[in-house]
């Protein structure tokens, strides 16, 4: 395992950056195009007071876009990965909280969102689980990038590599 990581780490890091950054960029972009939907989606979680939830709903997509771009181009990848992973952990907590309180909502992860018809309860619960697993996976990818932020095709390079060149 250790050897495997040593051998493929640069490409693994690149893949991790593209996956986490790509998901964040797409999710943020879709939401930024429809800010009112994003604001109402955050409000639907009923965690924050409505006004603050709206503000978070307006700001969150841009944070996702910024961090996504940093990861993809490989600038401050470690910092961006930590922020990205924290955002994912936040999503997981939010979805668990919603699930525990018995609320039925569409997470609004990629735009849209809001309350869901109670008739679809079973399906919504299954979706919650998948979303939690997906976001946990993405958080783990972020964690990997915390330890190995430098890989292929990256603007920022570790000093040692620059010296080698």
């Amino acid at each position: 395992m250790k050897n495997f990581n040593r051998k493929y780490q640069p490409i693994l890091t690149l893949l991790a950056r593209l996956v986490l950054g790509g998901v964040l960029l797409v999710a943020g972009g879709l939401k930024a195009l429809k800010p009112s939907e994003s604001a109402s989606a955050v409000a639907a979680y009923k965690i924050l007071p409505t006004q603050i939830a709206h503000l978070a709903g307006y700001a969150l997509p841009w944070l996702e876009i910024a961090v996504g771009i940093l990861l993809i181009i490989g600038l401050s990848a470690r910092f961006a990965a930590v922020v990205g992973a924290l955002v994912m952990v936040l999503f997981v907590i939010a979805i668990i909280s919603v699930w525990a309180r018995g609320l039925l909502i569409d997470c609004g992860c990629f735009g849209g969102g809001g309350a869901v018809d109670p008739a679809q309860a079973a399906q919504v619960h299954r979706t919650y689980l998948l979303e939690i697993l997906r976001d946990l996976g993405l958080a783990l990818i972020g964690l990997y990038l915390y330890f190995f932020p430098y890989g292929l095709v990256s603007i920022e390079k570790p000093l040692q590599i620059i010296e080698e060149q």
């Binding site: 800010p35 700001a59 841009w62 944070l63 961090v67 910092f79």
Partner: peptide
């Protein structure tokens, strides 16, 4: 610099969205 840029992007984006709404 990077943290500043990110904050700037987030702030401008959010203001832009709020004004649009």
């Amino acid at each position: 610099l990077v943290i500043g840029m990110v904050t700037l992007v987030v702030a401008t984006g959010a203001i832009f969205s709020v004004v649009g709404q």
